[in-house]
């Protein structure tokens, strides 16, 4: 079912692209080509032990109240699948390992920091922005809380404080923007005991990921999730089983905001289409008005028309 969906969506995207032929070279977020240093983070699910220290570190780094680190060794939490919420910007979930049931697969979830982020394209006020290094951050001073970013995000990452009447926030991983200002690694990367989260330059990280798959072909499936998905992401995953079974959405390779931006820029190409429409309507108005004035001069016709109206 999902597979069929993807094919449809690709077809959809193809039509969208053909539509964009009518658009112009107006700068689109989805067109910006990655340049310079781009962060990449590799999640090696084979190395992750599910200690959830990243969750703890993340909360501490973002001033979210949290219990002590010791309490995080409670494994019963893994029984149900957890998602992000306003108080947790990252969560680790446990998945069954068919090869060895006693050693489950752990998958960390957080914002993927897309190369071509749909949320940035969608945000009505530009509160979300993609920085040079590839991280996607949110500006509390701009956001109006419309939650369109949540609609747009293919990974369903941004969350919202539904229970706060004043200053509710859109929350998602910001790759520890504040920590990185002081040349520190993101909190989760820094605390990970096994470096299951490998932080580096994206190209270098990709190379390492490919090497690991090559070296252990019996362990990893030959797929780096995030290398190509919706135009590539900052966070990438390698795993021993299909990502569909790890609740990672099966996504195509075309950027999420591509079609929508093509349409948008088609409609608004340098304001040419709206202005043209305005001119056309004005012309029609002028032409028809002249005709109706001519009609008015023709008394008989006018009388007839008036008669028609009155009765």
């Amino acid at each position: 079912m999902k597979d069929i969906n993807r094919r449809d969506f690709l077809k959809t995207a193809a039509i969208g692209v053909s539509m964009s032929v009518f658009g112009t070279k107006f700068l689109k977020a989805s067109d910006e080509s990655p340049s310079g240093y781009r962060i990449g983070i590799l999640v090696d699910t084979d190395v992750c032990v599910g200690c959830r220290h990243c969750e703890w570190a993340c909360k501490v780094a973002h001033n979210i109240p949290t219990a002590s680190l010791e309490s995080y060794s409670d494994n019963s939490l893994f029984k149900e699948y957890r998602r992000l919420d306003a108080a947790s910007l990252t969560v680790v979930n446990e998945f069954e390992n068919e090869k060895n049931p006693s050693l489950p697969v752990y998958v960390k979830k957080q914002c993927m920091h897309c190369e071509k982020p749909a949320c940035v394209s969608a945000c009505i006020v530009g509160a979300l922005s993609k920085l040079e290094d590839g991280s996607v951050v949110w500006d509390t001073k701009k956001c109006i809380g419309c939650r369109y970013c949540m609609v747009a995000c293919q990974f369903q990452i941004p969350t919202f404080d539904y229970d706060k009447p004043i200053d509710p926030q859109i929350r998602k991983c910001d790759l520890c923007y504040d920590r990185r200002k002081t040349e520190k690694l993101p909190a989760c990367v820094s605390i990970c005991p096994t470096e299951a989260l490998l932080f580096g330059e994206r190209d270098e990280i990709l190379r390492v990921a490919k090497n690991r798959i090559k070296r252990k072909p019996d362990v990893y499936i030959n797929h780096i999730y995030g290398e190509q998905e919706i135009g590539g992401t900052t966070w990438m995953y390698i795993a021993s089983k299909s990502f569909d079974n790890l609740k990672m959405p099966p996504l195509g390779n075309s950027p999420a905001p591509g079609t929508s931006e093509s349409i948008q820029h088609g409609i608004f190409a340098y304001f040419v289409p709206p202005v043209t429409l305005y001119a056309i309507l004005g012309t029609i108005m002028w032409l028809t008005k002249r005709r109706s004035n001519e009609n008015k001069e023709n008394r008989i016709e006018f009388e007839q028309e008036k008669k028609g109206v009155d009765t």
Partner: peptide, 8 residues
Amino acid sequence: MWNGNSAL
């Protein structure tokens, strides 16, 4: 605060 890419 404008974002020309956004349909919204």
